[in-house]
Each structure stands twice: as C-alpha cells, then as structure tokens.
Design a protein around this nucleic acid. Sequence first.
RNA 1: UCCAUUGUGGUGUAUUGGUAGCAUACCAGACUGUGGAUCUGGAGGGCCGGGUUCAAUUCUCGGCAAUGGAC
Length: 372
Amino acid sequence: MFKITSEDNETGARTGQLHTAHGIAQTPFLMPVATKMTVKYLTQTELLNMGVESIISNSMILTMAPGVEHIKEMGGIHKFMNFNKCIFTDSGGFQMQSPKLFLSISDRGVHFRDPFSGKKTFLTPEAVMKNEIEIGADVAMCLDQMPHTTQGQEDWIQATKRTHAWAERCKSAHRLLEYNYGEKQMLFGIAQGGLDKKLRIKSAEFIEKLNFDGVAMGGLCLGESKEAMFKAVDYQVPVFNKEKARYLMGVGSPEDILEAVSKGVDCFDSIYPTQNARHCNILTSKGTIKIDRGKYAKDTKPLDENCDCEVCKTYSRAYLYHLIRMKEKSVLRHLSYHNVYFTQKLLQKIRVAIKENRFKEYKDEFLSSQTP
RNA sequence: UCCAUUGUGGUGUAUUGGUAGCAUACCAGACUGUGGAUCUGGAGGGCCGGGUUCAAUUCUCGGCAAUGGAC
C-alpha cells in the first residue's frame, strides 16, 4: 500500500509511505542494488544505520544461484541475508541487455545462459512471478522487455507490445500464486515505450489499467540525452494514478534524482553510488571528485567536508588515495560506504524539503553547489 | 681480479642497417533495473663516447653499469 503524506506546491514532488510486509519505506527513496543479496562491500547493519529502508535484488540471478529452493530452505530472502526491511526483486528484464546472459527471446519467454552452471534456462512471465514470490520479496517486478533507447521505433513498438502482454500474464499468474500460497506480495508493472511520445503514453495507460500496486518506468537512462529521458517521464507520470507509487528504474545520479522527484517520482534504484565508488568517483556536496587522482596524494581533508559519515569522520583523502594505490580492497568498502551514505542523506534531505514546502529551493541550492 | 651475458619509455618486454611496437604504471574522459570489469583518448624510450655507412637503436671498438660464474 502506498500513502502520500505531503505534496510540494511548487513542483510535482511528494513524500509518501510504502507500506510493505517488512516495514514502511519513506518515499522518495533510492534503493541500493543487491543483485546477489549483498550491496557490494557493505554490511546489512551499515545499511540500516544509514537509514536504508529498501533494497533491490534480482530474482533471475538468484534463481541461477543459489536457487529458489535454496533460499526457501534458508527461510526466505529476508532471513537468509538477514535484512528485515523492504526488499524488491527485479525480474531479469534488464539482463536481456547483457550479451553474456541473454540468448534469445520470443513471445513465450526468454532464454538466458546461466553463467554459474553454463546451462540454458528459460524464463516466462509465469515462472518469474513464481520465483519472486517464493524468494519472498516484498515487491515483485513484472518481466518486461526493455528496448534500448538507441534502437529504433520498430524495436520500441515490438518490445512495448510484448511487455504489455507479459504484464497481463504476470498479473494473472501473480493473482493465482497469491491465492495458492495464501500470501500477499506487491507487484509493480513496468511501462516502456522507448523515446516515442505516443508509445510512452500508450504504455503508461496500458500498465495503469492493469492496476498494479505500483508503476515503474523502464528502459530509460541508457545513454539517451537527459532531455529525452525526462520527456519520457513527463509523458508517463500524468497518466498514472496519483495514488500509486511511481518508480523510475535505474536512476541514478543526484542530479537525475532531484529532477525526477520534482516530476513526481517516488522510487529509484541504481548502482550509481556503489559502482562509482568502486571506480573512485566520489559524490560530495561540491560535486563528484575522482579520488584516485594524484592531486589527492597529500590532501588531508575528508572526502566531503560537509559529510558526517563514518568514513569522512575517520579518514583523509590522502589515506584513501594511498589505499587505492596499494590496491587494498578495504578502500572499496570505505568509498562505497560514503557514496551510499551520501545518497541516502540526499534523499532524506529531499523528503524534509518537500514536507517543508521548499523542495525547489533545496534542489536549486544543491545543483548550484555541484561545482568541484 | 678474470670470464661470460645483457644494456630500448617509470617498470617488464618485442622488432629492426631506413617511421622503434606491446603490456603495465601514469594523465584525462566514459560508466545510472551491478563484473571489482571494460572501453576511449593522451604523454613518455634506444647507457655514454668513438668508428664503418648516404643512414646506426641495430654492425664494430672503448668506457660505464647490471646479472651470472670463476678466483
């Protein structure tokens, strides 16, 4: 269940609560990605201490390893990984972009190569729904076909059409599974449409009509221009029922999140903070810095002078730079910690700003300070 | 002290009597429903001195240095 708790009167931003089987997640939120049941380099305790209320894993990857049966035997995903907050699971739709995993697709489903066993596996919308409910996710995502933004109109039409057919199949399979298992689980639909206005609107309408527990916008932030991406969001958001949680998949960067929130988006997931941390790109209140550069070798300041995270309170840029040069793995944890902390803090500030009706002001203030 | 071998970017290595390649490290970009990876640019070199030659990093002589061996 989703409940709006406040609305900004200058922008489309709003705060809300996503009520799940494992607590309430305050929106807008950004989910750290835990594809293999771990947010790379961070502990569950650290996530809780940062105020993370929801993470996202990946049912397709988990189906391959360690397997759905195994997770069930271990008491479900929450117990197994010992994270008692909200957990989303993605469907595997995005993995069709991975040449290493993706084999072929038809209306029936998708063939993937299991990288752990080398075997061919076949995923249908029905199978994905079963996997997600058996894993024990709080929020399941529909299986979609994600056309790449660099593909053309024909591909967008084709993929969107298939996404719609699969959304219907997911919906009815899910209803039946809930009945058979006697369990409740939220299910989010995903709208596609490439970069085409009509197709985006049509897709949003189709997904909206199926009355999911939440609606997602997929297939964006894949190299298209920011302008094109936010246009797609602009087309789709007004189509969705205002009372439903809106989820922009794969976003993102602080800038993108602020923009999307102002357009009324409630949920995000992204590897941006963690992957950039591993690549030594550090998010700070003054913009992104590349901490592996020689100019930080003797910099005694913390990563971000305005950050009160454990890493910033403890270590200097110079020390972290040294660990990077020495290829000490521990530094990946420190950098990941800071970046995730930074983004979680950002979302907290966004929520407060919306509640105090000064989101626009906060957004402008943040963006103007991003000049490293 | 003698003998042998070898001296090419910071490091490790190719090739060649006629434009000196590669890897890594370095500098700079990219990265948004996770490969830590990968990709794309950039800068950087013939131990020193003589000889042969139109031309030497290459052939030759000497010096210096390194490594191995002998005493």
